[in-house]
């Protein structure tokens, strides 16, 4: 393991001697450790990176609902409604048709439709949010259940062994 010798503490205030303070801190920490800060379980401080307590691999939760995460991503991604662009495949007249549709939309429908589209997007976003929360709770519960099942199986096996021993 490579030892990192870069300073842990940095003080940039010109009114303070940052290096001296950092040095003093280092010495105090070493001293305290040597004097027996044994009530600290240093091993409990690694690994640094916190992982979800119940790892995904511990559970069959996702297998129970294949594609749930993908569906959620899709739901969030599609929650915002978009206005269609007017297009026409009709030769020559197509441009006129598009222009008329645009003009009509500009004149009348957009003032009414756009707020409704926005409202619906808002409802969709909130629905996606709620479903996502529920799914996460479900996932957590399913993982807990899976752990409990494993624990139950272990206890049953242990009980069976004890019964066999008492008979023998």
């Amino acid at each position: 393991m490579v030892e990192n010798n870069s300073p842990v503490i940095e003080i940039h205030d010109p009114a303070l001697d940052g290096q001296a303070i950092a040095q003093s801190v280092r010495e105090r920490a070493t001293q305290r450790r040597a004097q027996g800060a044994q009530s600290v379980d240093w091993a409990a401080l690694v690994p640094e990176l916190l992982q979800p307590r119940i790892a995904a691999s511990d559970s069959d939760a996702q297998a129970d609902f294949p594609g749930l995460r993908e569906s959620l991503a899709e739901l969030i991604g599609r929650s915002h409604l978009n206005e269609p662009n007017f297009r026409s495949s009709t030769p020559v007249l197509g441009r006129v048709i598009v222009a008329v549709r645009r003009a009509w939309n500009w004149m009348s429908t957009k003032w009414y439709v756009r707020p409704i589209v926005a409202q619906q997007s808002d409802v969709n976003a909130r629905t996606a949010h709620t479903v996502s929360d529920l799914a996460q709770w479900h996932e957590m519960d399913a993982r807990r259940l899976s752990q409990l099942e494993k624990r139950l199986a272990e206890l049953e096996a242990r009980l069976a062994r004890m019964e066999a021993e008492s008979r023998g």
Binding site: V8, I9, P14, R26, A29, T30, R33, A37
Partner: peptide, 17 residues
């Protein structure tokens, strides 16, 4: 240049400061 910074998790030193 205010406050005190720690650059990494040297727990003992950070707790000491």
């Amino acid at each position: 240049d205010a406050g005190v910074l720690f650059t990494r998790l040297g727990y003992a030193e950070v707790a000491e400061v």
